[in-house]
């Protein structure tokens, strides 16, 4: 039905090769570092010299589920990642996009538990965006390979 594997050719496939040539720039704060670590793990070395991936993260939280005394019982968090993939040596990006991921969690009585929950939610959102960035790069290199081989 027209579906074919995204990572055709496995380790030495065009997609895998393309991704291995990407260097992941530093991303701010501990959350950025954890996301960069996960990206490097998924993409192979992350020290490639053909492309450079830049990511800027931004977290927004908003309370809802308002109680009768106006206190919030739920909190929504939206993590936005502005990504840019630029061939090294040029400064015109081939991918420039903003990815957004949302989650929500309970605000519990214990403040420390809420802080732990908030940090865990941010980390999981960052890992989800790292996965989506990885897929996005795979799609880009897959299409590039397709154009090259004229399929």
């Amino acid at each position: 039905c027209g579906f074919q594997p995204l990572y055709q050719g496995g380790a030495d496939g065009a997609v895998r090769g393309g991704i291995a040539g990407v260097e992941v720039g530093p991303i701010a704060d501990r959350l950025g570092q954890e996301m960069r670590n996960r990206l490097i793990e998924r993409m192979g070395s992350g020290e490639g010299s053909d492309y450079r991936l830049d990511v800027v993260l931004n977290t927004e939280t908003e309370g809802f589920g308002i109680r009768s005394d106006a206190a919030a019982t739920q909190e929504q968090m939206i993590l936005t990642a502005a990504i840019r993939l630029t061939p090294i040596g040029t400064d015109t990006p081939v991918i420039e996009d903003t990815l957004r991921a949302r989650t929500s969690y309970d605000l519990v009585l214990s403040d420390y538990a809420t802080v732990a929950e908030r940090e865990d939610a941010a980390r999981r959102l960052a890992f989800e965006l790292a996965e989506r960035i990885h897929r996005r790069l795979a799609l880009y290199f897959n299409q590039k390979d397709k154009e090259k081989t004229g399929q």
Binding site: Q4, P5, L6, Y7, Q8, G9, G10, A11, G13, R16, E41, R42
Partner: peptide, 10 residues
């Protein structure tokens, strides 16, 4: 942790 990508695309 490690990730493999098989030739078949798995």
């Amino acid at each position: 942790r490690r990730r493999w990508i098989a030739d078949s695309g798995f």
